[in-house]
Design a protein around this nucleic acid. Structure first.
Lengths: 256, 256
DNA sequence: ATTACTTTGTGTAAAACTTACACACTGTTT
DNA sequence: AAACAGTGTGTAAGTTTTACACAAAGTAAT
């Protein structure tokens, strides 16, 4: 047995210490890699947004007959000369017109029959965007935001992919202050808390929530208050990304 | 724009509400998936073990000329009719003779030029095994255990893959009591602590470590003590996997 | 302009957890 | 019998988490 994509043809070379050794020729490796053992590779993106105090996810209508009435994630095949991550960003740009976002790889899904067109392995990514800042410019295939609580029965294995990404998001949001990308530049603590409650699916104590965030010391009071609220307006804050970047090393998460 | 691997040929169908709609035919999808957009897919396994109070990783010598003197991870191409995970288990079985282990997918690596033979996307898995319980039966290409602290300059992008998996292991071992698979069935608390210190790369307070583990209440005193130690022997314990499984729901990790 | 209403903003005491730390015990070696 | 090496145990101080209540600020209705 051998490795790194084996073949039976070898070339003899001299090693550092003067003895000889058999190695596989590059030509052989290339033919091996380029021949039978190939699969189609795709990327699927789970794009989360936040609107009206609900966590949303961007879905598109499948136009495959088999899944004619079902929703699906934003996905496409990876080009042979394209990095996976590059493909993920391309797909998001194509489908939503956005290029300024956070994107994290989550998992590869590769069950043999997950796609009716043949073997397609897909790499799932998720992203968080601010719904208000990124109005959708393209609405092909009924692209739009769905409440995450109501996502069910997606096409292909997209339900599983969605759920895996949602769990990952819930975990990440406790490890890093990602959520700020979903809020307006200036936000009230109530908005921030609504966001965390929506993502985590739990209620949090208001006083303790405030205490925790102030203790982190990444919020900057911008000296303004909410307008157009039918009650006492709350102060507005900004997130100090620079300070967060500087503190990142010693950061190990938020505990709720 | 369309989705789920687009084509320009459509078939007209009737929808539920009686209107008509154009959908892509399955035949077209299949030809799309099977034609140009395919890549070679491989799996690489990072197998951790523990021996002589050191964390080890299993490496094999590459037999590609380009990497003639370098170590590499255990990897192989995924067969077109094989699940990715299935491939990972197959590779481990082939290379080490083992089939009773934990295996977790970590990340997909897909830079275009990561393999000299052409485009190869690889999915990385890691695993933990008990070195003593699994003597290596095959030693092709100098397969053997390397101290993780001394792993460097691996073939391909395997250094990056290794480091990603190592970080993942360090994180996971604080979230779940995985480490027990690396110890003998009956172990002393000192052995357990050595293991955690080796994996995390830090020193821990002995009294607090013991307190923490006893508080979790997954250790069963088997009423035996160490033998052949040149000092007071420690008590031996077993890990109560059943109890852990039952408690798993409300489990959120070990904090050191 | 007064009142009712809604949500903001704040502090504290109790409980839980984390950390740092020292000494007697048990078996082995000399 | 003495030296050695590592086990086993408790506690006080500090920190973090939790639960909880009331006055203040603005809006809306009268």
């Amino acid at each position: 047995m051998s490795n790194n994509f084996y073949e039976t043809e070898y070339e003899t070379i001299l090693t550092n210490n003067g003895s000889s050794k058999h190695v596989k020729t590059l030509k052989i490796i290339q033919s091996e890699v380029q021949s039978i053992n190939r699969v189609a590779l795709s990327v699927d993106c789970v794009i989360f947004g936040f609107d009206e105090n609900k966590l949303k996810v961007l879905l598109i209508r499948s136009d495959l007959k088999k899944y004619q009435s079902k929703w699906s994630l934003l996905g496409d095949l990876v080009n042979p000369e394209e990095d996976i991550e590059e493909a993920a960003y391309r797909i998001l740009l194509d489908r939503t017109g956005m290029d300024d976002l956070y994107l994290e790889q989550v998992h590869a899904f590769g069950h043999i029959n997950r796609h009716p067109g043949g073997r397609v392995v897909t790499i799932a990514y998720y992203s968080l965007i601010n719904v208000q800042h990124h109005k959708l410019k393209k609405l092909d295939n009924e692209l739009h935001w769905h409440d995450v609580a109501e996502v069910k029965d997606l096409a292909f294995d997209h339900q599983e992919i969605f759920e895996t990404c949602y769990k990952r998001l819930q975990k990440r949001v406790q490890e890093h202050p990602l959520g700020f990308s979903l809020l307006p530049n200036k936000f009230s603590l109530r908005e921030l808390q609504n966001l965390y409650e929506a993502i985590l699916g739990i209620k949090l104590d208001r006083r303790n929530f405030r205490k925790k965030f102030f203790a982190m010391d990444f919020l900057v009071d911008v000296g303004e208050i909410e307008t157009n609220v039918p009650h006492r307006p709350g102060k507005l804050y900004q997130f100090d990304y620079d300070k967060y970047e500087r503190m990142k090393k010693k950061w190990s998460g938020i505990d709720f």
